[in-house]
């Protein structure tokens, strides 16, 4: 199938891109690895595209004030190759090889994934686990939204139509941060059947757990976090956390019922937790 017709604007500055987003009923084109398939399948038909790929200054990773700032147009391949990401956001480095395939990672961007909010994508869950902030901007100004308040539903976020995700900011990981990541997939690089990302302090006083591919959006599992935080993280506490997953509003799909999703989430949590404790 061929994409329906649209107007195409190639923005070269952020200001120009924001102006176009304000004027037009436009979709932002980032890496295009999700938007282009949807257009080619005629599942979506934007009136106009604002291409962000030539916008200066939207890509790149930098450290400031104990925060790791990742430009929205930073491609997954660049994140994978980044020593700063490996050092300051090891969860992201750990998860990246599981995201799709090399050719997709060569184009796909962190901002695009964030703005799309695919419930099965890894990145939104990573951002939840890491306590990230999403930086948004429109012609009127800039604002920042915590990841916890950003992902609102199925492909639904706190972003307004005229806003662009311009950056993602993460707290720099302490050297002793514990992480765990596990996803259950039938084929390498597929969207998962269930996935879990965990960030914890060394003493387990703080634990953040997020799931993907089990609900209509990436979700925090706060009751499970509470079951593990401040404990020794042993088998009994872990099973309490697994039991606490009933807090999640599980959503089945054609390959797994809601009940199966619930089960697989527990498996993913156990396996990710084993990495946390390793």
């Amino acid at each position: 199938m061929k994409a329906p017709d649209f107007d195409y604007h190639r923005a070269e500055t952020l200001e120009a891109a924001l102006a176009l987003m304000a004027e037009e009923d436009a979709f932002a084109l980032a890496g295009g690895q999700s938007l282009m398939p949807m257009m080619n399948l005629r599942l979506t038909a934007p009136e106009a595209l604002v291409d962000l790929n030539a916008v200066d200054g939207l890509a790149g990773v930098r450290i400031e004030d104990q925060r790791l700032t990742i430009g929205a147009m930073t491609r997954y391949a660049a994140l994978e190759a980044s020593g700063e990401v490996a050092e300051h956001a090891p969860l992201v480095s750990t998860a990246l090889p599981y995201i799709a395939h090399p050719a997709i990672r060569n184009r796909g961007t962190i901002g695009g994934s964030c703005a799309l909010a695919d419930p099965a994508a890894e990145m939104p869950a990573l951002l939840l686990a890491l306590g990230a902030e999403v930086h948004l901007q429109n012609v009127k100004g800039a604002r920042s939204v915590a990841a916890d308040e950003f992902f609102l539903g199925l492909y639904e976020t706190a972003r307004e139509d005229d806003e662009l995700v311009v950056a993602i900011q993460l707290p720099v990981a302490s050297k002793r941060q514990r992480i765990g990541f596990h996803e259950i997939t039938r084929r390498h690089g597929d969207y998962a059947m269930a996935g879990c990302a965990i960030v914890a302090t060394e003493d387990l006083s703080e634990v953040r757990i997020a799931f993907f591919a089990v609900s209509d959006r990436a979700v925090r599992a706060r009751a499970a976090e509470a079951a593990l935080a401040g404990t020794s993280g042993g088998k009994a506490e872990l099973e309490n956390a697994v039991a606490a997953l009933s807090e999640i509003d599980f959503a089945g799909d054609m390959n797994a019922s809601t009940h199966t999703k619930r089960h697989l989430a527990g498996v993913a949590l156990r396996r990710a937790w084993a990495e946390v404790m390793a």
Partner: peptide, 13 residues
Amino acid sequence: MTPERVLKALGVV
């Protein structure tokens, strides 16, 4: 033999 069918066969789900 999908994961869900195997889990059903095992009585897990």
